[in-house]
Design a binder for these strands. Structure first.
Lengths: 128, 128, 128, 128
DNA sequence: GTGGTCTAGACCACG
DNA sequence: GTGGTCTAGACCACC
């Protein structure tokens, strides 16, 4: 399992971790029931603080993605988030933001679709 | 000119302001040469801190979008940002983030394209 | 005897075990003098750590509920806990917590009473 | 506003804080829109670490109870939590736990109802 | 050994 | 000055 962090990136490390793990699940590199490294191990591997790694796991546990149990590390509980009204609204907001930024840069519908599909293909192809 | 901020939103107010102004330009509600209110006026209208409004203008000036003149408000310099390698990479990163999040929620290519096109249409139709 | 644990639950496994056994006693499925499986047997049946099962028995023994005999399992000593000042205060604290949480969710007296009585009925009816 | 922590209690400080604030809201000592002390102030007043206080606020913000904004402290957003299926199930589980414990101690329906109503009255009467 | 919590102290972004 | 994040190091409950 390979997780790489970008310390220059503004987004918090724990948030990058959350997204990375979700991406690994998307790529089927992590399946339901699979176990993840212990917080301590992960923190050491990535050269970050224990608390930061713990926070990422905690967030994922609260979202129902991970099951973290004492003495047994963490494992994947669910391979997809629930898509309720709140999540839908949130996603829509992000789409709006991206679209407006793209439009301002002169990037239109076709190019945007292509970028998305390219990324989707990249994720799916990496599935063994 | 109508700008609405969402104070509950996590994204910084100055960033919301930057995006709102870009959106106004996208909608042709702001054309090249149009003038914007002074920082003081804008801050008062929106009920935000003066520094916050000033920062938004500063960011836009740095990107070459606005021309800010001491004490006389600002005016639109350019109606589109430059799309260099850095911006391209940045946009791509955002596309990746959005795509992965959508995929995790079970939202695929078709739905994503539809959301984007819907937003693009919304922006373009609002142009008088 | 049927004990089911919820590993996803935050509450410690040994604590769940303690409560489960108390519930079995409440339901008269375990009567005074009845014997329980050995720690080893119980741990194996439930797929939990031996220490965890041992701790549950230890707690129950400390409360005077179980009599644990080395290597020969345990047996029910008493079918009810003593209700002293400490226990009373403890129970009151739990009631307060529950009440406040319910109130915050808009669940009032009537609904709370109904939930409790429903549970009490469930327990008593399962008594053969 | 009065918040008291019990350091002997097993429940985490940040959790006690979360519950205390919810209780203050229940008692109408905190109304929608009311502002709370800054994280630093709260931490100092209670003699706890800044991070611990911040975590409590963060949890409440994630639940939509508090609105925490940069430079402006926190304020009450909503005076009640959403009561969806997950919350209902959770509450039911707690009721079951409490009921079983009470039953084991010989505390029955009537006494339990009385304790709850007493607490409910206590909370409501403290409302000015 | 494992995760959970807390403290202390520092830095940064934001208003 | 405010909240947000991260680090370092410690202690505890649990398995």
């Amino acid at each position: 399992m390979l997780i790489s962090l970008d310390l220059r990136d503004q987004t918090p490390i724990y948030e990058q971790l959350v997204q990375s793990i979700k991406e690994l699940i998307n790529r089927k590199e992590l399946l339901e029931g699979d176990s993840l490294p212990t917080v301590r191990q992960l923190a050491q591997d990535l050269g970050i603080n224990l608390n930061t790694a713990a926070r990422a796991y905690r967030e994922l546990a609260k979202q129902g993605i991970l099951s973290v149990r004492q003495g047994r590390g963490a494992s994947v509980l669910s391979t997809h988030g629930r898509y309720g009204p709140a999540e839908q609204e949130n996603l829509l907001k992000k789409v709006k933001r991206l679209t407006n930024e793209a439009l301002f840069l002169g990037v239109g519908s076709r190019r945007l679709h292509a970028m998305i599909d390219s990324e989707l293909r990249r994720v799916k192809e990496s599935r063994i």
